[in-house]
Amino acid sequence: MISNLSRLNFLKVGILAASIAMVGTESAAAQSTNAAAGSAQSVQSWDKTFPKSDKVDHQKVTFKNRYGITLAADVYLPKNRGNQRLAAIVVGGPFGAVKEQSSGLYAQTMAERGFVTLAFDASYTGESGGEPRNIASPDINTEDFMAAVDFIGLQSYVDRERIGVIGICGMGGMALNAVAADKRVKAVASSTMYDMGRVMSKGYNDSVTPEQRAQALEQMSRQRWEDAANGKPAYQPAYNKLKGGEAQFLVEYADYYTTPRGYHPRAVNSGNSWSVTTPQAFMNMPILTYIAEISPRPILFIHGEKAHSRYFSETAYAAAAQPKELLIVKDATHVDLYDRLDKIPFDAMTAFFTKNLPR
Rank of each mutant, 00 (worst) to 15 (best):
A107N: 01
R160D: 11
A119V: 11
G126V: 04
I140F: 02
N141W: 11
T117N: 00
R160E: 12
L154F: 09
G126D: 05
V149I: 13
V149N: 07
A107H: 04
F120R: 04
F115Q: 04
F151H: 14
G114T: 13
R162P: 08
D121N: 07
A136H: 04
Y157E: 03
A107R: 03
E161I: 10
A107L: 03
A122N: 15
F115W: 06
T125V: 09
G114D: 09
G129H: 01
S137I: 00
A147E: 10
Y124T: 05
A111T: 10
T117S: 00
F120N: 06
G126A: 02
D121K: 00
N134F: 13
Y106P: 02
N141T: 12
E143K: 00
F145W: 03
M146D: 14
S128N: 05
L154M: 14
Y124Q: 06
I140Y: 01
Y124D: 05
S123N: 14
L154A: 15
G114N: 09
G130I: 06
R113L: 01
R162A: 12
G104I: 10
E112C: 13
V158L: 15
F120W: 10
A122R: 06
M146E: 14
R160S: 13
G104K: 09
P138I: 03
A147F: 07
G153T: 08
Q155G: 03
G130N: 06
V149A: 06
T117P: 00
T109K: 15
S128I: 07
G130L: 08
T125L: 02
R160P: 07
A147L: 11
S137T: 01
G104A: 08
D159L: 14
R160K: 15
Y157Q: 04
L118V: 11
S123Y: 10
G130D: 05
E161C: 11
P132V: 08
N134Y: 12
E161P: 08
A148M: 11
F120L: 13
G104Y: 10
P138S: 04
L118K: 04
D159R: 15
G153I: 11
M110N: 08
S156Q: 12
A107Y: 03
A136I: 10
A107E: 02
R162T: 12
I152N: 13
L105Y: 15
I140S: 02
E161S: 15
D159F: 14
Y157C: 04
G130T: 04
G126E: 04
L118S: 05
F115P: 03
F151N: 12
D150Q: 00
Q108Y: 12
F145N: 07
G129Y: 00
E112R: 14
I135E: 11
R160V: 08
G130V: 06
A136T: 09
N141Q: 15
A148I: 12
G153M: 11
I135Y: 14
M110D: 04
F151C: 12
